[in-house]
Amino acid sequence: MELLRVDNLSVSVGNGPRSAAIVDRLSFQLSRGQCLGIVGESGSGKSTAAMAIMGLLDKRSLNVSGAVEFDGQNLLQLSPKRLRDLQGTEIAMVFQDPMSSLNPVLRIGDQIIECVQAHRKQPAKEAWSRAIEVLSQVGMPDPEGMLKRYPHQLSGGQRQRVMIAMAIVFKPRLLIADEPTTALDLTIQAQILDLLKALSRDLDMAVVLITHDLGVVSQMSDEVIVLYSGRDVERGPTEQVLESPQHPYTIGLLSAHPSLDADQDRLTPIPGAPPSIWERPSGCAFRDRCSEAVGNCTEATPPQVMIDKSDHLVACYLRSGTTPQRKTA
């Protein structure tokens, strides 16, 4: 059943000719229990998209357009009060850096209780036992002892478990995790990914997992979206996209990183670096790094086309067989 529908979501900064898109016409759907991976390099717009979906962007400084329909209601048009009710109960978020989202001078227990009581009037005692419950659910050793500790007395992995515990207090139907394991060690990353998988299964929770690691996507997500310069350049069922990538950027990403199981003499890097939002080239944003660019790639943003009539979509002229339309404006 469809839980989340994102339709032409765009986020831009500035006005008129002095404006630039951070997220450009992003669309996707997500059902309960499903995991969508969003991959991209730094600056590609992953966090901005996540914040936009959560309704956490400051609309005074950023222009947000499109629709984010959660369970039939457009989050972008909800009253602030109704939105706050949803955030943290039905929709929850986990960030990359657990230390900056925890209050350093409050004990873990008090923070979880505060989070419980912010949404539901509950006696402190009940909230305390709920805190113990969620901490054991995220696999925290000695949950009762942990409640009395301060954030700096926890390891990075334990802090991330606390963040996940707070996120699942109300058994949300949607969890948005923005690089939840990027700051963690490999072995701890494996524990947290395991945990997210189990929670998604047990709570039938939909997960949007943001990462820059294609390996993590391959392991976790059913569907994947590859973001480049705020644009969704390729998407589809994870296995299909990773096994037969179609966009030169996706292909480049996959071959730029060495494999643990195969030998390569020399890596094939993508030349140059991702452009800032103000420096994107016209037409296909990837064109000055693309070895296959042809003349018409400068003309207009390539449209998304289907690969073999499947859910695998790619935005590249090489795959569409069409020549781009001249810009009319």
Binding site: E41, A256, H257, L267, P269, P274, R289
Partner: peptide
């Protein structure tokens, strides 16, 4: 970024 790492590794 991954796309840039390979340049430095080479």
């Amino acid at each position: 970024d991954v796309s840039v790492q390979a340049q430095i590794l080479n």
